[in-house]
Nucleic acid binder design. Structure first.
Lengths: 339, 339
DNA sequence: TTGTACGCGTTATCAT
DNA sequence: ATGATAACGCGTACAA
């Protein structure tokens, strides 16, 4: 079974270069030779060796999705599978492969650099929701690997794709205000993550714009998980808010459970609005009013933008690329109707 | 910035071979030369080029997790993130990388073969829950790539890791019987997937063993999703079962919602038991009695077993390796107490 | 259009 | 202990 260009060349009675040209669809090969070579390839079941090819072309068509430690814990939230599905779909379309690198106990940032970033295998990296304290982004900058974060990052040199978190939060809170609520609390995400910051900022500025007071007791930090949302809501309840904006659907669902456990009805006693529109927003009782973000498109777009960087022939001065996708308010039942 | 062995060699005034030895911790290098070379490496920030190394050693330390089309749809079920987390953890420990390949619309099995399996990049492949009709397993066999499936596969030549689905289902059904139920229905998974087959088999044989009738109307096929479970339960309710064994937690949760929507109380009117023990089994109301399977360990073990195959020095005749992990009944509230 | 020759960055064998 | 030198399999100027 022939496994190298040389063997095919011998088979077909041509030189290795010619076989290479045939394999790479180079135009200047006579139809007859091409046919003869293709026959030999067919006959022997030859496939080019990717590694050797990569060594010669300096291309691997491999991207990495790196999930920082703080986020690995949240990995069961449907957000990540959805985002990954979008990313792999884009990779499949473009002929790339996606390496998945989760930070786990046995992985520190030194290992990451040596084993992953400097391996020579990666053409680009997507950093999923890196928190500000994370060393990942500085590492990427230093290694000079083309990369992109999902979720805004404050560093000037960082390209990212994000969704309009502030605008989304604003829509959510304005919806609550429109329904007649004034005692509106919020469950935030960890404040070292920019989406959490931005959703809180949207809440804060909307309350302010409507001259509504925001007491300290109306702000509870969660961790984006259902359990965290439940705990946060429990703390919030002593302040008797009539509505709560949770910075993620998982936390919103936790909040509903906490309200329920406290003998309160949703939306009758307290209205709840979430953020994400994950599948279970539709199956929770009551169905969750939420801010939809295009999660799959986020992953898809991240890959596309990254690829575009090294796919483009021109050597343009790589300018900063940032894209912010719109969010959308999905009204269901967890906020009831006007009071 | 020195980037090749040759440059380091020049820096340190030695030959390329010596530098290579230092990099690879080969013993026969004098302490002085080693120090000099290491200094040069440190100074220049040199890192070996993985691709070139792979070409020479014929090793890439890259594994792929391939998720077949039928399963890509279920990808938001917490099962997959958990399994992936286990797999990546094992990879991190062993110094391997994990390529994630989801079948999506833009990917057919021809592309998979040419672009993924035959790329030369993969040392091994894990096939996640391939259904019987899937072409993936035959392709893997034919390509002679070391692989392993997660979930039993009937082909003799296939190695796999699995959990004791039959035993788990048996425990679930026996629990219901012990509580006094006799009208026990089941919501199955798609019957072209072996875990779904086995869980159904566990149900069937346990009913039979206890000489309990199984009417046609007590069997409803779902698709492992919550929506599917809800639909299946709705069909089941006309037969008035007093208990239902669902082949996944997601479907069990759907079943609870359907019961609730029909005005039935769980567990008062109908008991529900699930399978998986995903995080939301704890947060659903009532808390779900379920069969726990060690999902992360499944992913972890799959990687370990695969690596072991090519890591072992000895050229043993690679015997068939199959591991089945135990399952465990977790009693919570969705089945109530004895009737 | 086709072939020759060199380079991609390592590892590994064999002298010394 | 160290250094030439030959693979590893392919791409690609350059020459013919």
């Amino acid at each position: 079974m022939a496994r190298t260009l040389d063997e095919i060349a011998r088979e077909a009675g041509v030189s290795r270069s010619t076989v290479s040209r045939v394999v790479n669809n180079h135009p200047s090969v006579s139809p007859e030779t091409r046919a003869r070579v293709e026959a030999a390839i067919e006959r022997t079941g030859y496939r080019p060796h990717g590694i050797a090819r990569s060594l010669a072309t300096r291309r691997t068509h491999i991207l990495a999705m790196i999930v920082p430690e703080a986020v690995t814990k949240l990995f069961t939230d449907p957000y990540f599978p959805l985002m990954l599905r979008g990313a792999t779909e884009a990779c499949n379309r473009a002929g790339y492969q996606l390496l998945l690198s989760l930070f786990t106990a046995s992985m520190d940032s030194g290992i990451l650099r040596d084993r992953v970033l400097r391996s020579g295998y990666l053409e680009g990296v997507i950093a999923a929701n890196a928190s500000l304290s994370d060393e990942l982004v500085p590492s990427l900058v230093e290694e000079r690997i083309p990369f992109l974060t999902i979720g805004r990052h404050p560093d000037d040199r960082v390209n990212y794709v994000d969704v309009d978190n502030i605008g989304g939060a604003r829509m959510a809170v304005e919806h609550l205000i429109r329904l007649g609520h004034t005692r509106i609390a919020t469950i935030t995400g960890p404040q070292d993550m920019t989406p959490a910051q931005d959703r809180f900022e949207g809440y804060r500025e909307t309350m302010e714009m409507h001259r509504l007071p925001v007491s300290e007791g109306w702000i509870a930090e969660g961790d984006f998980t259902e359990a965290g949302g439940r705990a946060a809501m429990t703390r919030l309840l002593s302040e008797r808010p009539t509505a709560v904006f949770a910075a993620s659907d998982s936390m919103a669902i936790g909040a509903i459970r906490a309200a329920w456990a406290a003998g309160l009805d949703v939306p009758e006693d307290v209205a709840v609005v979430g953020f994400d529109d994950i599948p279970s927003a539709l199956t929770v009782e009551p169905e969750l009013t939420t801010v939809r973000q295009p999660i799959e498109r986020l992953g898809h777009l991240a890959v596309e933008m990254l690829i575009q960087r090294f796919e483009q022939d021109g050597e343009q001065p790589t300018s900063i690329q940032r894209v912010v996708l719109p969010t959308e308010l999905i009204v269901r039942k967890s906020c009831g109707s006007a009071r």
